[in-house]
Computed example of a mutant assay.
Amino acid sequence: MSTVADVLGAVALLAGALLSLAAGIGVLRFPDVLDRMHAATKPQVLGVLLLLLGLALRLRGPMDLGMIALVAVFQLATAPVAAQMIGRAAYRSGRVDRTLLDTDELAGNQPPRAGR
């Protein structure tokens, strides 16, 4: 049973590393803020969770599993909030191409910008 858990842990670690690599490449290569924000959150969070799963399968200690669970909870709690704040800041600073948006829910809440 230990060998199966080690193999599954190695597969999860490799998959998580590849997803994190893809997210990093996406952040560097994507053209605009919204695409980069997507690359920084969705595959990165899944990559980190797969890395944590791989670590949990390899370590198996109660203290290790507790710490891994805390890291996973904080990752899931902070990544969406950070993406929301980045998107809102980009929208307010005028760095979002509004023609790409299907619906513009912030159009009515936009404070007047200085200089306009």
Rank of each mutant, 00 (worst) to 15 (best):
L13H: 06
R92N: 13
A90I: 01
Q110E: 15
R29M: 00
G87Y: 07
G24S: 08
K42G: 02
G9D: 07
L34N: 06
A12K: 04
H38C: 00
L14W: 09
G108D: 09
L13K: 07
L49C: 02
T3Y: 09
M67S: 11
G16K: 02
R60W: 05
L19W: 03
A90D: 11
R116C: 09
D35L: 04
P31M: 09
L8R: 08
A90T: 01
A72K: 08
L76K: 07
N109R: 15
A90K: 08
R88L: 09
L49G: 03
G61E: 14
A12N: 03
L18I: 13
V4K: 13
Q110C: 04
L51M: 13
V33S: 02
D32T: 08
A22R: 03
A39L: 06
M85P: 00
V4N: 15
L55M: 14
P43H: 00
Q75M: 12
A69V: 11
G54Q: 06
V48M: 13
S2F: 04
Q110F: 14
V4A: 13
M63T: 14
P112G: 02
R60I: 15
V7A: 14
V33W: 02
L21T: 07
N109K: 09
Q44L: 12
M37H: 00
L13V: 01
A39W: 04
G47M: 05
V96R: 09
L51A: 12
V81I: 14
A17Y: 04
R60L: 12
R58D: 06
G87K: 02
A79E: 07
L21N: 02
T99K: 14
R29C: 03
G26M: 01
Q75E: 14
A39K: 08
D97P: 04
A114L: 13
A82K: 09
D104L: 08
Y91W: 13
R29Q: 07
